[in-house]
Design a binder for these strands. Structure first.
Length: 564
RNA sequence: UGGGGUGUCGCCAAGCGGUAAGGCACGGGUCUUUGGAACCCGCAUUCGGAGGUUCGAAUCCUCCCACCCCAGCCA
């Protein structure tokens, strides 16, 4: 852990928590919760919330509950509660025994509803959904009171229990809070607390045919769990008066709801609807496609939990709508992987090189450093022979000004090996494409330095043709071409999809040492980037995903060259 | 036209009446057997705008402007 990681940045929520601890508002307790609805996969936006809630609990010696907000059986599935737990755990957080389900509170919620009915604060309403919308009024016009609003408590109690008993068809009646149809805040215009819905629930089965709605459920759940700080996103700010109203009327333990801005990232989309669309339309291979901003996608892409946690720390927490530059996320993985990923040589687009003065049947092993950032990671031996592969991009027949890699007549260093000089270029007769290079090597430069002290400008990675392993490498770019997809083009985010977001290279050659690389392992392919082994990989067919490229100064220069 | 929010560098973000932190990005340099990493330097006389209060304002007051959210029996 870096120092920065254990020194959290100040933000307004931490300030509130610290103040509360100081004043003893909650007797010094800190209890937060991460309350996902199990209706989809977690993404980097959820990670921000997870890090915030679990992070604050950890930091102030409190606890953070994992609570599934499972009050809508038509959308929720057990499969998701599984994947959510996996993702939270993978991110590095532990809820201990504190795993809860809103559905566990159904009986208590029902009792709370009965209490409100008895108080005259809730009533059964027979308006149809259409009528209800009509009666609600608009943003600028107040609503009208329902004709059922003044039913007696006895009648409401009777009706509500019969709703539960299944005497009425789906959607025929609801239980509503009796608040204020003229409120400027539409959430306070007698919001629905319960609906009749005959659907199989992933945990309660067919026990219930009425289900509570979010506003009623959430505050009561928080109260039952004695949450201190109920942290949610900005769109719930308008719901806070309702959160407070329910708890005040119920006269129960009352946590404080605090809202923060959700995360947006450039060059991607975050809404569940859009993510579903990408998967369904086949623009990606699934929820865990390495191009997806889902936790499972990022995991497959090679992002480490540490890098995601670090990212969530450096972006900060505030109430301003913002869109974080994807470059910051990239920076966070590089920072982490630079310290941890073993270096390895791998040639993505091979160009055959014959060392004409190297003995035909000779081979040798050269020592290579596993990670210059961490000597403790040791060294390894890499085989070398007369025929090697280098990267096609590392040779130019007619090199531009600032290109100082290999070119006819030019000498460069092969990393950990020898200096070589290009003495011949073999081309395909028809296409005129360069298919092979002839080079001489200098036996005096074994290991990569010359006794006469002469310098070479470039160091190339390479792989011995006879020893290298074939591999498939999947190169990823951002899923979208524009920083905020759909901003132009009439809001159609799919029009901004990057057609080159995935490029598959099939004839890559990697160091033989990679033979037993296991899915999930991360490496730095020297001079190219960070790559990890995909679950599709097998001993007979290695498959790597590019997590991120290395910062590439030459690419920048080249781009500038093209422009001028 | 109702209600709730937010406006500090290209992107995030500290700051809470005492004279604009930090990160990313960007530009320049040192070093280098990764054009990587590391390191150094530069990068808001100014805080949405206009007034006002004050010895002193990004921070307090007034007005204005811009943007975001809300009319599911979703969460």
């Amino acid at each position: 852990m870096t120092n920065a990681e254990i020194t959290p940045a100040p933000n307004f929520i931490r300030a509130i928590v610290e103040e509360d601890i100081k004043t003893g508002k909650w007797d010094g307790r800190v209890v937060t919760r991460f309350p996902p609805e199990p209706n989809g996969y977690l993404h980097i936006g959820h990670a921000k919330s997870i890090c915030l809630n679990f992070g604050i609990a950890l930091e102030y010696g409190g606890t953070c509950h994992l609570r599934f907000d499972d009050t809508n059986p038509t959308k929720e599935e057990a499969e998701y509660v599984q994947s959510i737990q996996e993702d939270v755990r993978w991110l590095g957080f532990d809820w201990g025994a504190n795993i809860f389900y809103a559905s566990d509170y159904f009986e208590q919620l029902y009792e709370c509803a009965v209490r409100l009915i008895k108080k005259g604060k809730a009533y059964v309403c027979d308006l149809s959904p259409d009528q209800m919308r009509e009666y609600r009024g608009t943003l600028t016009k107040p609503g009208k009171e329902s004709p059922y609003r003044n039913r007696s408590a006895e009648e409401n109690l009777d009706l509500f229990s019969r709703m539960r008993a299944g005497e009425f068809p789906d959607g025929s009646r609801v239980l509503r809070a009796r608040i204020d149809m003229a409120s400027g805040n539409i959430n306070m215009r007698d919001p629905v607390m319960y609906r009749i819905l005959r659907a199989h629930h992933h945990r309660t089965g067919d026990k219930w045919c009425i289900y509570p709605l979010y506003d009623f459920t959430h505050c009561v759940s928080d109260s039952l769990e004695r949450i201190t700080h109920s942290i949610c996103t900005l769109e719930f700010e308008d719901h806070r008066p309702l959160y407070d109203w329910f708890l005040d009327e119920l006269e129960v333990y009352h946590p404080q709801q605090i809202e923060f801005a959700r995360l947006n990232l450039t060059y991607t989309v975050m809404s569940k609807r859009k993510l579903v669309e990408l998967v369904d339309a086949g623009h990606v291979r699934g929820w865990d496609d390495p191009r997806m901003p889902t936790i499972s996608g990022m995991r497959r892409r090679g992002y480490s939990p540490e890098s995601i946690r670090r990212f969530c720390e450096v972006i900060g927490v505030a109430k301003r709508n913002s869109t974080v530059d994807a470059a910051l996320l990239e920076h966070c993985v590089r920072e982490d992987l630079n310290r941890k990923a073993p270096r390895v040589m791998s040639v993505l687009r091979p160009l055959r090189v014959v060392l004409v003065n190297y003995p035909e049947n000779r081979e040798e092993e050269l020592e290579a450093i596993n990670n210059p950032e961490d000597p403790a990671m040791g060294t390894r031996r890499v085989p070398f022979s007369r025929v090697i592969y280098i990267e096609r991009d590392d040779f130019r027949e007619d090199p531009p000004k600032q290109f100082y890699r290999l070119a006819p007549g030019r000498e460069v260093r092969l990393r950990y090996a020898y200096y070589i000089k290009c003495v011949g270029v073999v081309k395909d007769e028809k296409s005129n494409e360069v298919i092979e290079l002839h080079c001489t090597y200098d036996p005096e430069t074994r290991g990569g330095s010359s006794p006469d002290g002469r310098k070479v400008k470039a160091t190339l990675h390479w792989v011995s043709a006879a020893h290298a392993l074939q591999a498939e490498v999947r190169l990823y770019e951002s899923l979208f071409l524009t920083p905020t997809p759909g901003e132009q083009k009439g809001g159609d985010f799919k029009a901004d999809i990057n057609p080159n977001s995935l490029v598959v290279l099939n004839s890559c050659r990697v160091e033989p040492g990679l033979a037993d690389a296991a899915p999930g392992d991360s490496y730095q392919f020297e001079r190219q980037g960070y790559f990890c082994v995909d679950p599709d990989s097998s001993p007979t067919r290695l498959v790597f995903n590019r997590t991120a490229t290395l910062r590439d100064t030459w690419a920048k220069i080249e781009k500038g060259l093209q422009r001028s």
